[in-house]
Computed example of a mutant assay.
Amino acid sequence: MKNTIFIASIIGALVLTSCNKDDNMDTTINVNYPAAYVVNGEDATVSVIKLSTNEVTATIPLMGTGTDMIMWPHHISSHENHLAIGVPGMDLSAGHSGLMTAGMTGKLLVIDAMTGAIVKNINLPLMNHNSIYSPNGTEIWVPQMDEMNSKVLVYDATTNALKNTINTGMMSAEVTFSSDGTKAYVANGDDDEVTVINVATKAIITTIAVGDNPVGAWTGSNGQMFVDNEDGQSISVLKVADNTIAQTIALGFMPGIASHNGTKSELWVSDPMAGKVHYWTYDTAMGMWMHGGAFNTGAGAHAISFTIDGNTAYVSNQTANTVSAVNVTNHTVTKTINVGKKPNGIVIKM
């Protein structure tokens, strides 16, 4: 068990200007265009960036009041016209090392992507790093972070009924899926392992030893998953086909997130402390990822999301309170977009 630390960042969020659930329902927006949705943790809002102009066209308030209160929303996923957001209830922008979760609860939040209306707000027994739609969109999978008894809860996306509870490892953070939709991956930070789950049967297939303090196994379109090991300062490259490690990439910095661009055959990894993004290209002759370079985005560089054509990336900069729009071909920032406070998760809907 890693040394625990106390995170005392929640109180400050109480002084933020809030909006109740009815206020949010009355907020009039109509996002009928391709957009990037950016979760602002400290503000408890979602910034909507119109892709054609790279301008913030709407801000969706989430905070609410009482039992509906949303504090420190984190990562986001999408299915059709809905967005699912994980709400751990604490600030995770400084990393996960030594995280203490005793007594912390979370929420599963679903909002309408076009109107910003809150569709569901489900209280969870434990805090959750993310909430993610299953590959076919019929379920929402939610990890439960605990020092000893982590698990994944599987909800019916239509009825909200809890369908399955899957026991995982210690301090389970992000849950993700392989690009073919057959396997789910849960990063267990205190076990230094990743749990692999059969999506159809909900049975655990295996556990894979990775680096020190893994946070997420990020999806590649090339039959690989990329695990960011915070304390190990490395990326474990997992092969989906046989559940083995193909490569361990030494970084020399604590990673924020790893993101694979299949169109450009590049792997990007954010470097929060330096405000940079590093990228790797795949050398087919050597059968491994090779470092290609790095470029500046903004302080606290974190989430990375690519457009479908792979030509543009959006990077959230948590400390700078901005999002960088990046030309993928020449690795240059084309625009810096002001958003809310401590932006983290990003999802793009076309």
Results as ranks from 00 to 15, higher is better:
44 A>V: 06
37 Y>G: 03
37 Y>I: 02
31 V>F: 07
29 I>T: 10
43 D>H: 04
45 T>K: 03
49 I>N: 03
48 V>A: 03
19 C>K: 12
26 D>C: 12
36 A>H: 02
34 P>N: 06
30 N>I: 09
36 A>K: 03
26 D>L: 14
28 T>I: 14
19 C>G: 15
45 T>L: 03
38 V>N: 06
43 D>P: 05
44 A>F: 00
31 V>K: 01
40 N>R: 04
41 G>H: 07
22 D>S: 14
22 D>C: 09
45 T>D: 06
18 S>E: 11
21 K>I: 15
19 C>F: 15
36 A>C: 07
20 N>W: 07
47 S>C: 05
33 Y>D: 07
38 V>I: 10
36 A>N: 04
41 G>Y: 07
45 T>W: 00
40 N>I: 03
48 V>F: 00
32 N>R: 07
26 D>R: 10
23 D>R: 09
26 D>H: 15
22 D>H: 10
26 D>P: 08
46 V>L: 02
23 D>C: 14
25 M>P: 08
28 T>V: 15
48 V>R: 06
49 I>P: 03
23 D>F: 12
36 A>S: 05
33 Y>P: 08
33 Y>I: 10
30 N>S: 14
47 S>Y: 05
40 N>T: 06
30 N>C: 12
33 Y>H: 09
45 T>P: 03
39 V>N: 04
17 T>Y: 11
38 V>G: 03
41 G>F: 05
49 I>R: 04
47 S>F: 04
31 V>G: 07
32 N>W: 07
29 I>D: 08
38 V>Y: 06
36 A>W: 03
39 V>G: 05
42 E>I: 09
32 N>V: 11
45 T>F: 06
34 P>L: 07
34 P>K: 04
27 T>Y: 13
39 V>Y: 02
31 V>I: 14
24 N>L: 09
32 N>Q: 11
31 V>D: 06
21 K>W: 09
39 V>H: 00
41 G>W: 01
34 P>Y: 09
24 N>G: 12
35 A>R: 05
43 D>L: 02
21 K>M: 15
20 N>T: 09
45 T>V: 05
23 D>N: 13
47 S>A: 03
22 D>V: 15
29 I>V: 10
17 T>G: 11
31 V>A: 13
18 S>R: 15
28 T>C: 13
34 P>E: 06
25 M>Q: 13
21 K>E: 15
28 T>R: 11
20 N>L: 08
21 K>N: 12
49 I>D: 00
17 T>R: 15
24 N>W: 07
25 M>D: 14
37 Y>S: 02
27 T>E: 12
36 A>R: 01
21 K>P: 09
30 N>G: 10
47 S>T: 00
27 T>A: 14
21 K>V: 15
18 S>W: 09
18 S>V: 10
29 I>S: 10
18 S>K: 14
42 E>N: 08
32 N>I: 10
28 T>K: 12
49 I>H: 02
49 I>F: 01
39 V>F: 05
25 M>K: 14
21 K>F: 14
19 C>Y: 14
